[in-house]
Each structure stands twice: as structure tokens, then as C-alpha cells.
């Protein structure tokens, strides 16, 4: 069993939003419209958080935040219908057909990585990725590590009678990052690039004191330290 994980090197992140856009296109993420955005109902599976500093105008820090796929996820424990759960690859799944929209999981997620469809924002149709379902009104959605790509990659590998190779399965945000800041792979394989990065002294996990054990690991920016 793999343990899919991701590292994001904040030294390399320029805050360009390519990951967020690629994610939006890949996963049929709706544009909720200005009214709902003002109500805080924006949906952004991959969100590039921006921190500015009044003492250093013009300087900003960026922190891309997908679902962190906690190894001990708080959101799954509160789901009354098991619509969200940690699957055998460690990925936190969300079964839209099973979701009743109670939003307990959203309240439980310390990273605000889950989003609710307050309305039917769009219908399935041309221009959307047919590999990803279009979520209707009343369900919670979030980053799935582009799980549909894993299903297809596994299917292809099975057809070719070989095990899944590194690089067969890569989420859209990783592909899109122009600086190569995001590394994705199997954390259970100590030789994988992602496991190597995760052992870096710069590695930290968001709010790790909560014991959620995120599998998205950020690498602290060296540049920031030098300049400070």
C-alpha cells in the first residue's frame, strides 16, 4: 500500500496561482459568483494563502494549502454517514453520493480545506472533466489528490501487467507548478523524492501540534530567514 503525500517548498513558491488554476480546471470546481464569494462561500481546493507584512510593504509570503490528507484526520471522525474516510492509501476520500451535507467535517477541519455547495453552481456538460463528477447542491467537497488520476493510472498499469511506477500518478497542481515547488509521491517508500524531502530539516507540518499528522508537508523558506 502506498501512502500518498506531497511536499511544497516555500522557497520555490512564487505565489503565481498556477496550481490553484490547474486544480480548478481539473476538478470541475465551480465559480460560485460574487455574491456567494462575499458570503465566504468560495470553493478552492488548492488555496494559495498570502501573508503580507505592514512593516515590509511589497513583501509577501505564500503558502499553498490543498487538503492536507491528515494521517489522523479530524474530519472523518465526525462524519455520521462515513462519506469521508481515510482510504487504504492514506488519502482522505469524500464520497459525494454518500454525503448528506451536514458540514460537521467542515467544522472539524482545522485547515478549512473543505467546502460546501450552497447551490447547484453548474451542471455536467461540455468543457468539464468527465473523469470528475460535478458536485450538486448540498454536498461537501475538497481536494482528493486528483484521485481520479490514480484510478486511471492503476487501471493502465493493471492492463499492462505491471505495478504502478513513480510518476504514473501525479496530481494536476504538481504538473502545473512552473518552479517545481510541489513534489508528490509515496511517503511509505523511503527512497522516493517526496520521502526524501519530507526528511528535510526545513520540513514542517501545518498545526502539527494538533496531532493530525498531515501528509502535505511544507518546507520552510530559507530566503525569508536570511532576510529577516
Amino acid at each position: 500500500m502506498a501512502l500518498w503525500g506531497m511536499t511544497i517548498d516555500l522557497d520555490l513558491c512564487t505565489g503565481c496561482q498556477a496550481c490553484a488554476l490547474a486544480c480548478k480546471a481539473e476538478n470541475n470546481i465551480p465559480d460560485v459568483g460574487t455574491v456567494d464569494v462575499r458570503r465566504g462561500r468560495r470553493i478552492a481546493w488548492m488555496e494559495v494563502l498570502v501573508q503580507t507584512d505592514p512593516h515590509h510593504p511589497g513583501r509577501a509570503r505564500f503558502l499553498p494549502r490543498p487538503c492536507l490528507h491528515c494521517d489522523d484526520p479530524p474530519c472523518t471522525k465526525v462524519c455520521p454517514v462515513f462519506a469521508t474516510f481515510r482510504d487504504h492509501n492514506g488519502t482522505v476520500g469524500q464520497v459525494y453520493a454518500q454525503c448528506i451535507g451536514c458540514r460537521f467535517c467542515m467544522a472539524a477541519c482545522p485547515y478549512n480545506a473543505k467546502y460546501f455547495n450552497w447551490r447547484t453552481y453548474h451542471d455536467p456538460g461540455p468543457g468539464q472533466n468527465p473523469q470528475v463528477s460535478v458536485r450538486g447542491k448540498g454536498v461537501v467537497e475538497k481536494c482528493t489528490f486528483c484521485h481520479h488520476r490514480l484510478l486511471l493510472a492503476e487501471d493502465r498499469a493493471r492492463g499492462e501487467g505491471r505495478p504502478l511506477a513513480p510518476g504514473d500518478y501525479v496530481p494536476a497542481c504538481v504538473e502545473a507548478c512552473p518552479t517545481g515547488a510541489i513534489t508528490f509521491g509515496d511517503l511509505a517508500d523511503p527512497d522516493s523524492a517526496v520521502a526524501h524531502q519530507a526528511r528535510s530539516p526545513r520540513a514542517f507540518r501545518l498545526l502539527e501540534e494538533l496531532g493530525t499528522r498531515p501528509k502535505v508537508i511544507h518546507l520552510a523558506a530559507r530566503r525569508e530567514r536570511d532576510h529577516a
Partner: peptide
């Protein structure tokens, strides 16, 4: 923790 051969009852094996 169920294994792949013979199919899998993990919901995300079929749901996307």
C-alpha cells in the same frame, strides 16, 4: 487495509 486483488470495498475504488 483491504488489498486490491479481487476488488476493493474502499468507496473511492469506484467513486470519484
Amino acid at each position: 487495509a483491504s488489498s486490491s486483488p479481487g476488488g476493493d470495498a474502499d468507496c473511492t475504488a469506484c467513486h470519484r
